[in-house]
């Protein structure tokens, strides 16, 4: 009789333990999804800026049609990408490369560089860039928590049982719109 009670008690404890771990895994996964939505918001901010940027540059540098087209293409590619973080990152990196070339090209047009509109966009892009990087940091932190949880013993058993998968880190390149001046006297980076 006592054996049965003992067995039942142990079973109940195990069940509670499984529920606890399951819930914490669900919570972690929810955080990952949530923070991924955060990254998408910031990426969208960048997509919204690019058409303006392209238009502004067109006004000064008509000959750079090829680069401009490439950026526009890369933008629509990245915009339509709805895959995993790594495929999104691959698409973003194409866009980032295009933008970098765009800024390299714009160096040759002094009027463009002096244009108020262009400067504002550049500033806004740098700002968006920072936001993307910080939201990425938050996302990756959450992914790290989830992945650790799904891999360490004994919660990996529960994770395997309920098919919690590892999430992917989101790694993209930075544009570096402009270098911070060595003396950060707050003159141009807001």
């Amino acid at each position: 009789m006592t054996g049965i009670y003992l067995f039942l008690g142990l079973g109940l404890l195990t069940l509670i333990w499984i529920i606890c771990i399951y819930n914490s895994l669900v919570r972690l996964r929810q955080h990952v999804r949530d923070s991924w939505a955060g990254i998408e918001t910031e990426l969208r901010r960048r997509y919204d800026l690019i058409p303006n940027l392209v238009e502004t540059i067109k006004g000064y540098a008509l000959h750079e049609r090829e680069v401009l087209n490439k950026v526009t293409e890369a933008r629509s590619l990245a915009l339509s990408s709805t895959g995993s973080p790594s495929s999104q990152a691959a698409d973003e990196n194409i866009l980032v490369k295009g933008l970098r070339r765009l800024f390299a090209v714009s160096e040759a047009y002094p009027e463009l560089k002096a244009s108020q509109n262009f400067l504002e966009l550049q500033k806004e892009l740098a700002n968006t860039e920072n936001r993307i990087q910080t939201s990425r940091r938050f996302y990756n932190g959450n992914v790290r928590d989830l992945n650790t949880r799904t891999e360490i013993f004994p919660s990996n058993i529960i994770a395997a049982l309920f098919q919690f998968r590892r999430s992917e880190y989101f790694e993209i390149e930075e544009i570096k719109v402009y270098e911070n001046p060595s003396i950060d006297i707050n003159l141009d980076n807001s």
């Binding site: 955080h31 949530d34 923070s35 955060g38 910031e42 920072n130 936001r131 910080t134 939201s135 940091r137 938050f138 959450n142």
Partner: peptide, 9 residues
């Protein structure tokens, strides 16, 4: 503040 707020979630 906006940046760091995003990093802190």
């Amino acid at each position: 503040i906006d940046e760091m707020r995003i990093a802190a979630g």
